[in-house]
């Protein structure tokens, strides 16, 4: 029996410059961690786009379900007291 595959899928996250957030780029295929990093670099940083790369096996990503969008995100929509504009500041107060 052929064991041929196209290798495992990995998700690629890249940091464009030091201090920035890691941003999802897409995926690549590789059989192990080292290969995944190299393939991610060769695929998503051909123009020097990155300073750092994360790779995560696609099968390890846990994603929220669209059906749960109300349950997960609506409850925090009305917590406007988390926003700085919720508060009334005395006239003339600075640097706050």
């Amino acid at each position: 029996m052929s064991t041929d595959t196209q290798l495992d899928s990995w998700e690629v996250f890249m940091q464009a410059r030091t201090g920035a957030n890691f941003i999802h780029q897409g995926s690549i295929h590789a059989s192990d961690k080292k290969m995944a990093l190299q393939n991610a670099r060769d695929t998503y940083s051909r123009r020097g786009e990155g300073t750092s790369i994360w790779v995560v096996p696609t099968s390890e990503i846990v994603a929220s379900s669209p059906e749960d969008v109300d349950m997960l995100f609506d409850p925090s929509n009305d917590k406007i007291y988390r926003m700085p504009t919720f508060y009334t500041m005395p006239e003339g107060a600075k640097n706050i």
């Binding site: 052929s2 064991t3 041929d4 595959t5 196209q6 290798l7 059989s31 192990d32 961690k33 080292k34 290969m35």
Partner: peptide, 23 residues
Amino acid sequence: GAWVREAAEAYKNKNEQQSINLN
């Protein structure tokens, strides 16, 4: 290229434990 991909898979399966310890 099939034998190359098969080799990579085989190596992974043999060395899975090792590669987890790599970090």
